[in-house]
Design a protein around this nucleic acid. Structure first.
Length: 890
RNA sequence: AGGCGCGUAGCUCAGUGGGAGAGCGCUUCCUUGACACGGAAGAGGUCAGGGGUUCAAUACCCCUCGUGCCUACCA
């Protein structure tokens, strides 16, 4: 006997441990079964579970559990990402608290510290995945800095270098002065800001007058090496070649002509700072201008900034402006909207900064990755994301992969101390060609995303030719949010195609972003984050998972509301209670027969209409769920299960079989119980991928279904576990019509639910036998007695009426009857029917409709029209009767 | 600046070229032997606005308004 309420807490832990102990989640390196593989988007090792992960994990687990039950050799490969900058930041903060820093510690000691930290806290998020029920193969857990993965990173680096796809050079990159490292273009977040445009006067060196330039960053004038104008600009043409003198620092720079300059913007004259602006950098190269770096890596003014040396970049801006103003060189200031780049890790404003970095020449790789999607080897779902993918890939720029931090994959490049030799190698070289000993390794590490780009094959053992690789590559699907489409998905595509010659995954399913109930992006600073672990504690993991699945409609963001979780907890409660109902009615000694026998007619007693109907409904919900999952329509799968279990199984079927269960006839009881247990067991199996815990708990206590020792390895239901039965569904519809007709009268006339009603049903040929056969159901479900059914039934005095297809229902009410209320009720009903008739009639009288619409549609409308006319006639008759009685009573 | 998406019941959202559905909320009735985290009945919508294509548009096309996001080197 089950407890009165479902208490998720203990149960979840119990079953998760059981599954682990039984090793159900372990995949086989070699197997006759078809393979199904998902690699987890590795969360940051510093991270803790947020609601986005929860969604991600739930959807992946649904697919994995479903496929596992469906007979696939299933691998869900888990792991974490070393998250270079983020992790280094975390540990540095800790050092700061201890009154030290990484420089005092030195590189080696610092890295040791980080590993220690990882050992202590790195498992947090992994444990949280387990709380969510994730059925990962933990024996294959990976970390991007593992030895194996590091070997893959070196291999890739060296091969790309040898092919000329990795190069080193001095370019303008994005620099975070706080993290003290270069960032790739993607790692810069742009934020629209209302800024100012400052107009500065540069005086000519050899003549009177000035030229005015406009800039958003006045402090960079210290690094100006030219003023550029458009060669076509009449205003300035005569000034080309002249020199101007920079105020305060008194450096002379030329006025040059360049097509880049937009004459309509600002004054049409641009100050050129080649070392601090991407456009100016290009101009500087074209015109061979000097590159003056006025900043340090900390974002302070350098030696080159003259009197401003040592000032913070923003402080310097203030001072520069004040000085320019003082000497009358600041012509004016206007408002100007602009986008400012911030570091995606620490939100500091980034600087375009000149430095020597490593880059991947990426266009050739992108080409293949574009083709893979265009030619359909990889399908992106929903397909709308393909556009973004192509857009980015087609305009891709070289990828800056070196980072000036310590935590990460050290770049496998060594420099000789004695000659110019650069050694790029898989192994640490002992000496240089020139004989010099112990070359020095490059100080920098690689972008974390460089290693995650290899994730789908490095985790499977590459560069070795492993069985795992043979079995599971390409993986089946990648499930993730759109926010890392470029960061990660696109890069995995490029690397996978390059090194495996095959796409890393067949499908990419992009899910929604979860926002708060007001539609705001969740963020710690806004304080509107929903903690998934709190949800699991409060409502149980299953209710939370079901909610996420039900929310996961394609192509729309999720506005998360806790109320909805609460609603689905009620669904869990409902399921729990059917289970209780079963446990109360199925005793140890109750005989349960396989449904096959019932439906093959092996038994003396035949299944009832209720049995046949629910089996037929089951046969249609099974493929519906399967198809929805196949198409990643998680919300549809959840909805179909909800509808079937609650509204069909519980609301109708369970109520209908109660007489059998409580009755004396053991034979019919056996059939009802057997069918009930079967349908419920199949329902649990269908639900299991979405709510693994409660289904396992109930299933283990169910009096049947122990062919396997756990639900999570039971065969996923196929439609054969139901029995399609059109006739039963047709008959059931007639019964339901009768029942809802009577309930409707009861409800609308406010008759007590406990009052037993008499009912007379005037049935058509079609319905008469069906109703007679099933009159017991009507009695039970509509709480009626003395139901009389026939073709010749007449409208008794003082009775309410309802018109349904194939039948007319009369409920004699005698003393309870309120004739006026009934007339109002019927008149309202009549009004509705008249509206329908008008609408359909208009269509049918439209010649074009009858001529051009498909015959089936026309026929359908004609039928509808006749039905409504029939209904109208009956209602009118009933109203007329009431009128007559009222008159005769007066 | 360019691109993408969204606007359907009070709220959150499904949905489809043939007069709209769910959950929650709301109203009325009900402790009937699984469940009040429940049951039964009901109210509630010019499917943002305007135009077009079509026999037929909430759905397809165009425009407007509102709203959200992504990409971008306009100083």
């Amino acid at each position: 006997m089950l407890e009165k309420r479902y208490e998720p807490k203990d149960i979840e832990k119990k079953w998760y441990d059981f599954w682990i102990e039984k090793d159900y989640f372990r995949a086989a390196s070699k197997s006759d079964k078809p393979a199904y593989c998902i690699v987890i988007p590795p969360p940051n090792v510093t991270g803790s579970l947020h609601i986005g992960h929860a969604l991600d994990i739930t959807l992946q687990d649904i697919m994995i559990r479903w496929k596992r039950m469906s007979g696939f050799n299933t691998l869900w490969l888990p792991g974490t990402d070393h998250a270079g900058i983020a992790t280094q930041n975390v540990v540095e903060k800790e050092l700061q608290r201890q009154g030290t820093d990484r420089h005092k510690l030195g590189r080696e000691k610092f890295i040791e510290k980080v590993w220690e930290w990882k050992k202590l806290y790195g498992g947090t998020i992994i444990n949280q995945l387990k709380v969510m029920g994730a059925s990962c193969d933990w024996s294959r857990e990976r970390f991007t800095l593992d030895e194996g993965l590091s070997r893959a990173v070196r291999e890739v680096f060296v091969r790309l270098y040898e092919e000329g796809l990795i190069y080193r050079g001095e370019y303008l990159i994005n620099w975070c002065p706080r993290c003290h490292t270069a960032l790739s273009d993607l790692e810069v977040e742009h934020e629209d800001k209302q800024g100012k445009l400052y107009y500065i006067k540069y005086n000519f060196t050899d003549q009177e007058g000035h030229i005015t330039v406009a800039t958003t960053r006045p402090e960079t004038y210290l690094g100006d090496t030219a003023v550029a104008v458009n060669p076509e600009d009449e205003r300035y043409r005569h000034l080309i070649g002249k020199k101007v003198r920079l105020p305060v620092i008194n450096r002379d720079i030329p006025v040059i002509a360049d097509d880049f300059v937009d004459s309509s913007f600002g004054t049409g004259a641009v100050k050129v700072t080649p070392a601090h602006d991407p456009n100016d950098f290009e101009i500087g190269k074209r015109h061979n201008l000097p590159f003056i770096n006025i900043l340090t890596g900390e974002g302070r003014m350098s030696e080159e900034a003259g009197p401003y040396k040592g000032q913070d970049r923003f402080e310097c801006r203030k001072n520069v402006l004040k000085d320019l103003e003082d000497i009358g060189r600041l012509e004016k200031v206007t408002d100007h909207a602009m986008a400012v780049g911030h570091c995606y890790r620490c939100k500091t404003i980034v600087e375009p900064y000149l430095s020597k970095q490593w880059f991947v020449k990426i266009a050739p790789l992108a080409e293949e990755a574009i083709r893979a999607v265009k030619e359909g080897q990889v399908k992106i779902i929903p397909s709308g994301w393909e556009n973004s993918y192509f857009d980015w890939m087609e305009n891709i720029k070289d990828w800056c992969i070196s980072r000036q931090i310590w935590w990460g994959h050290r770049i496998p490049v060594w420099y000789c101390r004695d000659c110019e030799e650069i050694i790029v190698s898989r192994e640490t070289p002992a000496e240089c060609k020139c004989g010099s000993a112990a070359p020095v390794q490059d100080d920098d590490v690689l972008d974390t995303w460089f290693s995650s780009a290899l994730w789908p094959f490095s985790t499977l053992g590459w560069p070795d030719d492993t069985d795992d690789l043979k079995t599971f590559y390409p993986t089946s699907v990648l499930i993730t949010g759109f926010d890392i489409l470029f960061f990660w998905v696109a890069r995995m595509m490029m690397m996978g195609l390059k090194f495996m010659k095959e796409e890393p995954f067949r499908h990419v399913y992009i899910h929604a972003l979860i926002r708060d109930a007001e539609g705001q992006k969740m963020s710690k600073s806004k304080g509107n984050v929903v903690d998934p672990l709190k949800m699991t504690e409060k409502y149980g993991t299953d209710a939370f998972r079901f909610t996420l699945a039900a929310y996961a409609a394609q192509g729309r963001d999720i506005k998360f509301s806790e109320q909805r979780v609460e609603g689905y907890r009620h669904f869990l409660n409902k399921i729990w209670n059917v289970a209780r109902f079963i446990s109360m009615n199925v005793k140890e000694e109750t005989e349960i027969v396989p449904v096959r026998k019932i439906y093959k007619g092996d038994l003396r007693t035949a299944p009832t209409l209720a049995d046949r109907w629910i089996m037929s409904r089951l046969s249609s919900v099974i493929p519906e769920v399967g198809k929805s999952l196949e198409e990643y329509r998680f919300n549809d799968a959840a909805g179909a299960l909800y509808q079937f279990i609650w509204h069909e199984l519980c609301d109708w079927y369970v109520e209908m079989i109660k007489p059998e269960l409580y009755g004396e006839d053991q034979e019919s009881k056996k059939i009802a119980v057997s069918t009930l247990v079967h349908v419920f067991e199949v329902s649990l199996a269908l639900l299991h991928p979405v709510m693994p815990f409660i289904t396992e708990e109930i299933w283990q206590q169910l009096p049947r279904g122990k062919e396997t020792e756990s639900l999570c390895i039971r065969k996923y239901p196929s439609s054969g576990e139901g029995t399609e039965d059109r006739e039963a569904e047709r008959k059931m519809n007639v019964v339901m019509d009768a029942v809802t007709g009577i309930r409707n009268i009861r409800g609308e006339l406010n008759l007590s639910p406990s009052l037993e009603l008499q009912a007379l049903i005037k049935a058509s040929n079609n319905a008469e036998d069906i109703l007679n056969e099933n009159v017991a159901y009507i009695g039970k479900l509509a709480r009626t007695k003395d139901v009389r059914i026939g073709r010749e039934v007449h409208h008794p005095k003082n009775s309410a009426s309802a018109v349904r297809p194939d039948m007319e229902i009369f409920i004699p009410l005698e003393g309870l009857f309120d004739i006026d209320a009934e007339i109002i009720r019927l008149t309202k009903e009549k009004g509705k029917v008249e509206e329908e008739i008008q609408f359909v009639g208009k269509k049918l009288s439209n010649e074009n409709f009858v001529r051009k619409a498909p015959p089936a549609v026309v026929e359908e409308n004609k039928l509808k029209y006749d039905e409504y006319m029939e209904k109208l006639k009956s209602i009118q008759n009933n109203i007329d009767k009431l009128d007559q009685w009222r008159k005769s009573d007066e």
